[in-house]
Amino acid sequence: MNLLVQLSDVTKRYDGGGAPAVDNVSLEVGHGESVAVMGPSGSGKSTLLNLIAGLDRPTSGSVHVGGDRVDKLSETRLARYRRGKVGMIFQFFNLLDDMTVADNVLLPAQLAGVPAARARARAAELLAALRIERHRDAYPARLSGGERQRVAIARALVNRPALLLADEPTGALDTATGEEIGELLLDLNSSGQTLVLVTHNPDLAARYASRVIRLVDGQVSTATGAR
């Protein structure tokens, strides 16, 4: 398997001691895979995703993504890593309310210094593919939850990342809209996009992931194939 993500003996402890949020986890994700990380609340799913995204650093162990030792990168290199190699989708979308849809989507490309024309063309392509181009000049607050998540997906993909990380992408959506977003992620994965999906919805994991990893109290309890 051509590995894209490799976590080795990763532990994450937050200040104040207590049980680790992620406890000695090792994990591998190949190019083009779709992996679901499941577990109850507080099991360490989001922390694991944050460690892969470089939003947080492990207390011990190593995180490799696409040849980068993520846990050892400086803050500046981490930012470049996030804008170039990973795209993130959040449960509550994390769109910037004072920017239009188009501006939200363009932001990672602009931060990366992508030429304006090329960035605009890529954003237009994504907005069209995600069927939200009519909202390009609207503000996120005026969109439905599903539309907002599509905007978030477009933003995550604008720099063509090797890895798409999704943290409860349907958690704030109604069932029908959640289905739509799930299908969208499935389509992306089918087209070769590597996907790591955090969810506590077994149906979502079963339908849209090729592999499911279960976390309990920060430790991998089982890893099974799905779909």
């Binding site: 803050e75 500046t76 930012a79 470049r80 994390n94 769109l95 990672p108 931060l111 933003r155 720099n159």
Partner: peptide, 16 residues
């Protein structure tokens, strides 16, 4: 602060 987190999450460097 939250927006700042979003900016950083999508790739804003410390200098930026």
């Amino acid at each position: 602060a939250h927006d700042l987190g979003v900016f950083k999450a999508v790739g804003m460097t410390p200098r930026q």
